[in-house]
Amino acid sequence: MDNDMTLEQENAKLRKQNAFKTDVISISAHELRTSLSALKWILKMFLDKDVGEINAEQESLMKKAFDSNERMIGLVNEMLAINHSDEVNLTYETEQASIEDIIDTVLFDFIGEAYKRGIELLFLKPEHPMPKITADVSKIRVVIQGLVENAIKYSEDGGKVFISVHEKGREIEISVKDTGMGITAADQPHIFEKFFRARNAKEKYSVGSGFGLFTAKRIVEHHGGTIRFESTEKNGTTFYITLPMAAK
């Protein structure tokens, strides 16, 4: 009976992982295809001389670029074809980890960018070390990296980004607060949806996948945590992540 339950739980876990893997690949393929489409169309317009005459050498190079792009499209199509097979598995490798250490390594990567734009990037460290979490460190790093990256990206030069952590019952809460453009009330209900990008974010940066927050939510929830945010348009956003403490 116990064995049956364990097997059932294990199967449910694998199904969940598999669904996540499928989603990530579908979204990545969609985004790759979007960029490759633009390249394909532009190169074809040059080759068809829709935008003026090109010389023979330019035409030959354009043709090579077009063919290379076609090969890339073929690869993406192949990637999608195997997407529903069980051959590709997204696995989680968990360990006991310090959230402060994870945040420190993430912030290190952003110091240069923040400095260049005059953005104050500050980790408000707790007075005492936080209890450890059980996490796939590389994936939690991706989540925090995404939040910090967005906070900097969508802030005006000279803005502020604060990261803090504290205990909340049996969980650790991490917050990433910025003084940036904020998320409009109309866009807030959609912010964790696949492909969704807030309208003001698209206006500021036309390039973006729209799956960072979707993926972040999936990763955090896989760890048994939560992700939410508070935001006012033009007055900044704070994202909150909670992650369970490691069992003692």
Binding site: T34, S37, W41
Partner: peptide
Amino acid sequence: DDNFLGGLVVTKLSK
């Protein structure tokens, strides 16, 4: 919704 892609399509079809 992608203005860049939309712009390319509009350019081509208008031509």
